[in-house]
């Protein structure tokens, strides 16, 4: 069994690692599609395929989440991209919002 080497800490390394870690953990925004009693299930599937380029199976999975759980998180992005998706989804008259990620 090889020996375990002691970690060597160079000055400055710690700060950089922390910054990278913060970037990785930045929650950004989640794009949420909410259930409503008016949009057809097949239509919601169609919109997910169109907006996100998903295969039918994945689109149906999220559509069923919306239908059964009341909402589905369909994307986690920075502000601008999340805003773009909300514009697109609301253009199709889905109940979509962006919420600060957890």
């Amino acid at each position: 069994m090889p020996d375990t080497a002691e970690p060597v800490v160079h000055p400055g390394t710690t700060t950089e690692e922390k910054t990278d870690e913060l970037k990785t953990l930045d929650p950004g925004y989640v794009v949420v599609v909410w259930n409503d009693p008016v949009n057809f299930m097949d239509y919601v599937t169609h919109v997910f395929m169109k907006v996100f380029g998903w295969a039918k199976e994945r689109a149906e999975k999220h559509m069923l989440e919306v239908h059964q759980q009341g909402r589905s998180v369909v994307a986690r992005e920075g502000f601008e991209k999340a805003e773009h998706y909300v514009h697109r989804l609301q253009g199709y008259h889905l109940q979509a919002t962006m919420e600060k990620g957890l």
């Binding site: 909300v86 609301q90 919002t97 919420e99 600060k100």
Partner: peptide
């Protein structure tokens, strides 16, 4: 008047105005 978020966030007022114009 579309909403961008379900959370009350006055900082989103400009973005919601853009969303309204865009739609």
């Amino acid at each position: 008047s579309p909403r961008l978020s379900r959370a009350e966030n006055p900082a989103l007022a400009d973005a919601e105005a853009l969303l309204k114009d865009s739609l």
